[in-house]
Each structure stands twice: as C-alpha cells, then as structure tokens.
Nucleic acid binder design. Structure first.
Lengths: 203, 203
DNA sequence: GTCTATAGGGAGATAGAC
DNA sequence: GTCTATCTCCCTATAGAC
C-alpha cells in the first residue's frame, strides 16, 4: 500500500505540524488552533485524535527520543565488524545529528522545546531520555576505558551540549554538511580544539 | 545610602522576578500576574514601570548580556599581567559560568529562554549578543593564532554549547564547584576528552 | 507607586450535527 | 474524521481612584 505511507493519516499530520510549531515557538506559544490551521482542519477536530494538548505533546516529545534511539541503534548494527574507536564515536555523532536535522522535526522539537513544556509533561518523558543517555554512557565507557568513570557523564554532557546547540546555528545545506560537522565535533571532543585544523570537511 | 542598595526599588524587583520566572517557564508561560504576585503587587502596577510585557522582557534579556559582558571585561582587566593562554581562556570560562550561576537569574534567563521569546523581541537583542560573541572570537583568535579562522567561530560555538548547557544539569553547590567546572571545560575544549583525567577539581 | 475594575481577545476543551 | 457553536477561564492592557 504505497498510498498509506505517502499521505500520512490525520493523527500523523497533527503530530508533524505540532512538532514543527514546537521548534519555532515552544510549548505554551503553540496553540491547537495554529496546528489545526497548518493542516487545514479546525481546532476541535484535534480532540478526535488526542485527549488534550498535553497528551498530544507527550507523543511528540517521545517520538523525538524514538528517532534518536533508532538512529543510535542503526549504527550499532553495522559497527561490530571493524572500525577504530574514533570512527565509532563519529558514526554515533553523525547519527545523532541526522536525528536532529534529517528525520522531521521531532528530535529538534525535543531538544529545543523540552524545557518549555510543563513539569508534569516532562516527568512523563524523563525515563525515555534516561534510556538514551545510558546508551551513550555505555558507548563512551566502552570506547574510552581509560576515562575516569566520574568524568564520563560530564564528558557526555559536554558532547551533548556541542551537538544539540548546533540546531541553533548550523545550516545543513552549507559546504560543511552533516558528515563534516560530525567529524569536527568528534575530533574536537576527543583531541581538543587544536585538532580542528587537521581535519578536512572533504574526507 | 545602604538601604537603597539592600532593598531594590519597585522596577528592580519586577525585573528580578521576571528573570526567575523566565528561567523556570519560558516567555509565553510567564504571566504578568505571576510576576506581580511573586513580589506582592498586582499585575496592573507593572505598567507603571514598563510599557508592555515585551518591553519588560527586552530589559531582562539585555541585562543577561550585560552581566556576561561585565564578567568578560572584569577578567580582561587583570589578565594583562601574566598568564599562559590556557589560563586566559579558563578565566573567561569561569567568568561566563559565574554570570550563569552567581549573578542572579538574568544570564540564565537569557541562555535558556531567549528562543522562547517572540521574534520582534529577539531581533532587538541580537546586536548585544553579537557584541559578546565578537569578544570571544577575538579572545580565541588571540590565544589560538594557529587555528584556522574559518574554524574559529565553530570552535566558539562548541565551547558555548558546552558552557551554556551546564545550566540544565550542573549543581554549583556540589564538590566540583564552578572553578572545577571551568577547569574541566577548558581542558576538554583545548586538549580533548582524554585530558579530563589529568585534571583535578582540587587545584 | 500601587490599587480596583474591567475591557477585549484568545486559549483549551466539550457537545452534537454531519 | 471533521465541522460549528459555545463554555469557561485567563491573558495583556487601560482608566481612574487613592
């Protein structure tokens, strides 16, 4: 059934529009009327798909995590074969950036707007966030066994900070590209700022 | 006049409360009623001090920048004397973290809530942000002359990403402290993740 | 400088027709 | 699955008393 994938159903279209508005405006500024208008329906119709505004955005935020987790796992599938530690991290950084820029607005919405949502909503999502963070901790512990375990979560937070804030300034259509950006972030993370010069965006 | 400094005047108290609400809730979710209630006045009274909600928050955001610029300049004053390049950056990182955690909520509000504000408001603030970014670019160009000038803004953005996201997870009351955190961020930025082990929080 | 009172608009949510 | 109509609530902002 080609058609079913090409034209998303009503619920899917609501979610897509909600994610895009979330990136642009944050939680509170995004109204159900706007979301409805974006996809050509009326606000009341949204309640056929979701019980409340909060309910709708819980699903948007958890999809943001799902996209990241899927990206992470897709790398793990192929990495077993070969690859040095640096490449392993770089592939995961690339996957994370891909989730941010290449798979719709869900992950971008999560990263930029999560803290603009009400606390009750956020606490429903926290376990999913923890899961993703644990995967990264495990990866870093595996690839960098010499790193003090007390320093490992901090290293991950530095890396997340560098990766996630790219959504505020990076243009994936530019010359560098997501592959080049992933490379720069990885070498800077592992070797420091001096190593940036040694890397070329044309690899 | 001791009193005048100890008990902030009406306008000052509004600004302080607005900055704190901004950190916790973002722009749209923060209402003038809440801000007024926090300082024991009524919402209408705020209009004695500010022409509009937007006007009030323009002042909050620009103070957030002022605090950062002041912190940056206070380091420049003393650094001329001595100091190797690493220390120079570390002192500025420490100053930036100080602005985030030790000088009220203005800078924290700026960093966390700037993108939740309406575009018209943001564009009024952008020149001030640019000024602060240029100072950092100049510092990095001076301290790291061997770094490719095309890579320099990217390096700064990585550093900003690592510094600014600490507001989401770092507890300044912990063992590490802001001095320790500034040290970790600096060595990680300059030398990469491997250098984290070599640094001690007790310096 | 702060109050009360209120205007005017827009939000989330519900009920029932189609 | 979407519509219209509407309820209730709360927002920003204003006007004028104290």
């Amino acid at each position: 059934m080609r058609r079913a994938r090409d034209t998303p159903n009503g619920k899917q279209r609501v979610l897509d529009a909600a994610a895009e508005r979330l990136v642009a405006q944050g939680y509170t500024a995004t109204t159900l009327r706007e979301i409805a208008a974006d996809i050509g329906i009326k606000a009341g119709s949204i309640y056929h798909h979701f019980e409340s505004k909060e309910d709708l955005f819980i699903e948007v935020f958890s999809r943001g995590i799902s996209v990241m987790v899927d990206a992470f796992e897709s790398v793990e599938g192929v990495e077993l074969s070969c690859d040095n530690p640096i490449d392993r991290i770089e592939q995961h950084v690339r996957a994370h950036l891909g989730a941010l820029f290449e798979h719709g607005s869900y992950t971008a919405a999560h990263v930029t707007a999560f803290f603009t949502a009400p606390v009750e909503l956020r606490s429903a999502i926290v376990p999913l966030r923890d899961d993703y963070e644990h995967r990264w901790n495990a990866l870093l512990a595996d690839v960098l066994p010499e790193l003090d375990t007390a320093r490992l979560p901090i290293a991950r937070l530095f890396l997340f900070g560098a990766m996630n804030t790219t959504i505020e300034w990076f243009d994936p259509r530019g010359d560098l590209g997501l592959d080049g950006l992933a490379n720069l972030i990885t070498v800077q993370f592992l070797e420091g700022v001096h190593a940036l010069n040694l890397q070329r965006s044309t690899r």
